[in-house]
């Protein structure tokens, strides 16, 4: 993590070729972050390149005491918001979620598990944007609460509450899709 920070400091101070290392370390995760949100491979690639372009343009604003991934995801968030503003097609899932499942399972035994994953992707796709992104940051990108708080502009306490609500929302949607009444949850 502090490696990233050092690299970004160098990029900021003029060694722009070091951005290549940051790209190699983060582009895949960032791509999947966008892919889960937009459902489109093309859009996600476009957005990733745009994020790194913005990193270059705004490199002077990177702070000595900053955290690279919090900063990068803040930029990523704005990039996505701007993208939807320009294309005004709010969170439209352009490809069917199931076509996005890349890990094709062995037929038979894993088939049931595969079904679950398709359902989970559908449930994720249904989630409101802000809930999806908090799950992606915490569960997929394993960002510490402090960093998520930096990206979203809220306290660690508020981050915890948001993650819980988002998880609960996701679970409700998942079980509704799965048609499992037994897990019906109490609404607060």
């Amino acid at each position: 993590m502090s490696d990233d920070h050092q690299l970004m400091i160098s990029v900021r101070d003029g060694e722009t070729e070091k951005l290549g290392k940051l790209f190699e370390a983060h582009h895949k995760r960032l791509y999947n972050f966008f892919l889960h949100q937009t459902g489109s491979r093309q859009t996600s690639e476009d957005l990733v390149v745009d994020v790194f372009l913005r990193i270059l343009k705004y490199r002077h604003t990177y702070k000595d005491e900053g955290s690279f991934s919090a900063w990068m995801y803040t930029i990523a968030r704005h990039t996505r918001i701007d993208y939807y503003k320009e294309h005004n097609d709010q969170s439209e899932f352009m490809e069917e979620p199931d076509t996005l499942t890349s890990n094709v399972p062995d037929p038979g035994e894993e088939y049931e598990n595969m079904d679950d994953i398709i359902l989970l992707r559908k449930a994720m796709a249904e989630l409101p944007e802000d809930r999806r992104e908090v799950i992606l940051m915490s569960r997929f990108n394993h960002m510490p609460y402090r960093e998520i708080g930096e990206v979203l502009g809220c306290t660690v306490g508020a981050v915890k509450v948001r993650i819980y609500r988002a998880m609960k929302d996701l679970a409700e949607r998942y079980f509704r899709l799965a048609g499992e009444k037994s897990y019906e949850m109490r609404r607060n």
């Binding site: 722009t16 070729e17 951005l19 290549g20 790209f23 582009h27 895949k28 995760r29 791509y31 999947n32 892919l35 889960h36 491979r41 996600s44 690639e45 990733v48 390149v49 790194f52 372009l53 270059l56 996005l100 890349s102 890990n103 598990n113 679950d116 994953i117 989970l120 992707r121 994720m124 569960r139 997929f140 998880m167 998942y174």
Partner: peptide
């Protein structure tokens, strides 16, 4: 929570690298 483990990451296409390095 446990099902989410199954949502694997996928590789972006090769063009993304070309585009990034061209941009750089």
């Amino acid at each position: 929570w446990s099902k989410m483990e199954g949502l694997s990451e996928e590789e972006p296409g090769p063009a993304i690298r070309t585009r990034f390095y061209t941009m750089l």
